Amino acid sequence: MSYQPPGGMAAPDYGRPPRKSRAGLFIVLMLLLLIVVLGTGAWVATKVVSSIKPDNSTPPPAPITSVAPPPKLTASVKPKPSATVKTVPVKPLPITPRPAIPPSDSAQLAARFVTLLNANDAKGATALGCVDTKQAIPTLIEQFVRRPASLTVSKAQVSGAGAIAVFSLGGTMKGATAGGVLVVEVAGQPCVKSFVLRTV
């Protein structure tokens, strides 16, 4: 045991051995742990990859073919007589034909509508609209017709389906060439369904 005099420096302790450094041991242990982790990871990766790849070493199974002979018919099968079907006459229902609208009526309506558009008579043109589309006619006039307008309509319908007749529109609006279509409903009293106009 060393004795330290008061106020003086302590004498070196020569009796104890110097402390050993364990840094090298820690480094070796860390390297071993790293090698074990990397090895385990590589082994797991190879197992996963090999389970994904198809095994080409085994040949595909051969198709199954039946070797049994077809069954033989031992007894002749007689067809059963078909049941007789009674036919009952059906009386046709009387159909009252819808009165045909002469094409001239729908063409006259189309010509009258275009005349009112040229005269800037939106109220009169709206009066020729169908009941279900009459409210939309003023909006269509405001959207498509440009003043001054000099429009013409085809004398006969260019296409039609059922109760609809389509007429071709042409002419000029605000000095530019215009074109479009006018749709007229011809079921019952002819009326204007809709129209579209575009300037070229």
Rank of each mutant, 00 (worst) to 15 (best):
V44D: 00
S194N: 10
P17A: 15
V36F: 03
D121H: 07
C130V: 02
V153F: 04
Y3E: 15
K20V: 13
L109D: 01
F167S: 06
A62E: 15
I95C: 00
T177E: 11
S76P: 11
G7T: 08
S106W: 02
P89D: 08
A176C: 03
L182N: 05
A11D: 05
G171E: 09
T84L: 10
A119C: 05
A176N: 09
S150P: 05
V186M: 02
P99C: 11
E142C: 01
L140M: 12
T87N: 13
A178W: 00
K80F: 07
A163F: 08
K53L: 15
G129S: 03
S57A: 14
L34C: 13
P61E: 14
V48N: 10
K155S: 14
I64R: 06
L93M: 08
Y14I: 08
P102V: 12
Q135P: 02
V48T: 09
A127C: 12
P89F: 06
A187S: 13
A127E: 15
T172F: 02
P94M: 11
V184L: 04
A100S: 04
M30T: 10
G160V: 09
C191W: 04
V85W: 00
P6R: 15
N120E: 08
N56G: 14
F113R: 04
T46Y: 13
V196D: 07
G39P: 08
T199Y: 02
G160W: 00
P54K: 06
I95P: 02
Q108T: 14
T65W: 01
P12V: 04
K174E: 14
A10C: 07
S21Y: 01
K174L: 10
T46L: 14
P69Q: 05
A149D: 10
L31D: 01
